[in-house]
């Protein structure tokens, strides 16, 4: 299965210009969504028919901290003027939605929070997600960003055959 990762603290704006460059909404995203967006660009850039709408691909996002980095930004804005632009990113699953919108993935999108990166638990959850009869492949991501500058960001593109063999 294909695997990509983004080193902690990397310049995400520079990486965006390198791997995408045509999606200015990127700059409105929180760090979690930016990482998920870029990881998926790196995974699927060379797929044929990449922007054809499809329901057979799931997006499964895992982390420990969820969207806590952005939660802190929103909490800080509350003292002055609560920011709707920050509030909409105060959910751990928005990153999966951003990936679905960009790539026209109308399949399952799910966000899970685990105590830590636990390979056994994470891949058991991925295998279980393939119980959905429609799902033939999935973008699987572990994106844990306790702050805007420190993270673990890994993603895999997996097929039903690879997962269930």
């Amino acid at each position: 299965m294909k695997h990509v990762s983004i080193p902690s603290g990397a310049d995400l704006g520079a990486l965006y210009r390198q791997v995408a460059g045509d999606y200015p909404k990127f700059f409105k995203m929180d760090v979690l969504s930016k990482l998920g967006f870029l990881l998926t660009e790196m995974l699927v850039a060379d797929e044929t028919d990449r922007f054809q709408p499809r329901e057979d691909r799931a997006v499964l996002v895992f982390s420990r901290e969820g969207c806590v980095a952005n939660d802190r930004h929103y909490a800080a804005s509350m003292a002055d003027f609560p920011s709707p632009a920050l509030f909409v990113y105060t959910l751990p699953n928005i990153v999966a939605g951003e990936i679905a919108i960009r790539n026209k993935y109308a399949g399952e999108t799910s966000a899970y929070v685990l105590e830590k990166y636990d390979e056994e638990q994470l891949w058991a959850l991925v295998r279980e997600a393939f119980q959905d009869r429609c799902t033939q492949s999935a973008v699987v991501a572990w994106i844990d960003c306790p702050s805007d500058t420190v993270w673990q960001a890994d993603a895999w593109l997996v097929s039903r055959e690879e997962i269930l063999k």
């Binding site: 909409v88 928005i94 939605g97 679905a100 790539n103 109308a106 399949g107 399952e108």
Partner: peptide, 9 residues
């Protein structure tokens, strides 16, 4: 089942 609109956040 869980499905995404792939439309707007």
């Amino acid at each position: 089942a869980v499905r995404n609109d792939a439309n707007h956040i």
